[in-house]
Design a protein around this nucleic acid. Structure first.
Lengths: 125, 125
DNA sequence: CTGCGATCTGGAGCGCGCTCCAGGTCAAGC
DNA sequence: GCTTGACCTGGAGCGCGCTCCAGATCGCAG
């Protein structure tokens, strides 16, 4: 949907592009994870390219296990202009470290699992 | 606790060694994830070395995100003797692949996150 | 003008994986 | 003998993150 040169996306298109369900998009707006999304005259949501960009980050944070409460904190400071860049960096860096720990856990436990698989293979030959 | 040369572990010791809470151990027995644990005359649980070994695998599967329903399936076939080795291998291999995908997702999203951090760093200089 | 499908709202419901609680039993130390 | 603390059971409750529903409205194709 293009209005005076600006592209907007319907809820369905946005769900398609971001991987969040329409219900989840509404839910995210309701809890303040998304700022109030622009509406058509009839009251329907229309997502901007910026909205999709922000949803991309939310996707990233969610996929890597950030709790919603912390995503809200990030969303909140993201609405407060450039003076919050430091805090945004702090939030994302703390999360980056958690991702590192998750990866380490997965690598270690994968080895454990593979040992077990090898054991069964040996034992069932 | 050692009884005629065999070592047993109290619920508290088992929780300590496995990282599962006592409540979780009880819950796992209740839903059939653990086979009925041996009891003292007074009805208290006493975990064997084998139990701890099995809990180690459960720890591994849980830490890597296997749903409880699937862990139950694994636990079930694990009680049915050596003829289920093939199925156990199948379950664990399928899970191994899921772990690979998880790791890939984390690595990719970590890059995304780091891009964002770099962007804020640039922008706030 | 009529359908019909997409969307709206507020609020209830759900699946998962625990976690907590009440009320009771037992074992060991003082 | 009494206290204390670990443990028992059955069942309720909870936090998270959605997901679903009813009932209404809108907007475009035929």
């Amino acid at each position: 949907m293009i209005i005076s040169g600006v592209t907007f996306y319907s809820p369905a298109q946005t769900a398609e592009k971001t991987g969040f369900s329409i219900d989840t998009l509404r839910y995210y707006e309701k809890i303040g994870l998304l700022d109030r999304i622009d509406r058509t005259a009839a009251g329907r949501r229309r997502f901007s390219a910026d909205d999709l960009g922000f949803l991309g980050i939310l996707r990233c944070l969610r996929d890597t296990g950030m709790p919603i409460a912390e995503m809200r904190r990030y969303a909140e400071v993201s609405r407060c202009g450039e003076e919050t860049f430091e805090e945004r960096i702090a939030i994302l860096e703390a999360h980056d470290e958690r991702i590192d720990r998750q990866i380490e856990t997965l690598l270690a436990q994968r080895e454990h699992l593979r040992d077990k698989i090898r054991y069964y293979r040996e034992a069932s030959r």
